[in-house]
Amino acid sequence: MANAVPSGALSMEIPPDPPRTAIPGSGTFAVTRPVLYAIFFLSGVSALIYQLCWQRALLTVFGSNVESAAIVVSSFMVGLGIGSLFGGWVSERPGLPLLLAFSLAEFIIGTFGVFSLDIFKATAASVSGSNLAVTAAVCFLLLLLPTLFMGSTLPLLVTHHVKSMGNVGKSVSWLYFVNTLGAATGAIIAALLLLAVFGMKTTVIIGAALNLLAAVLMFLNWLRERRAS
């Protein structure tokens, strides 16, 4: 195994799928890894589109000084962290279909995304004039819902992936790779194309559309997997 990849070369090819028989008690896997990776890539693209747009929108309404930037970044972090725990907790529920949970998470993120800028604007207007603590609390609450579900997606997919692959490191590596590659792609297309050409609202809608696409694709794959089992 250690010598499977030629020295000095980076193995970029996706390893072949294991036989469609899973480890005992975990069901049968109809979703091929490239499909799973493609869906998680889309999720990563939309995540960075949101990060750039939401950060910009929130700093416009809460102020673009360093304190507000720290609040926004910390709110993202806290939400993702809680989401990660939430995803880990969900992944341990016996009998809960992980792909369906992932699909639902993407659906919720996408739906929030569609209305996100209007929500930010309306909420900001209602807390105008509040102190730093109130601003921080409101910012955290605004971002809690989407970041909770964003943070949950990695543990959900890793759990599913480990069941088919039987290797935590490889599962995390591949999933982290495709998701982060998607994030890098999202940053590039948002910065060099979408924001300049379409503006914030349309860019966020494109991000939401990618989430909803990921949700639908994963839902269809879940149905396929259920039929197969």
Partner: peptide
């Protein structure tokens, strides 16, 4: 944003590279 993209791309490639280290 483009610096962030380069940073994320590096993290992604590093993540994949880690498979090689894991094998080792």
């Amino acid at each position: 944003a483009t610096m962030l993209a380069a940073y994320l791309l590096g993290l992604a490639i590093g993540s994949l590279w880690s498979i090689r280290v894991q094998r080792r």
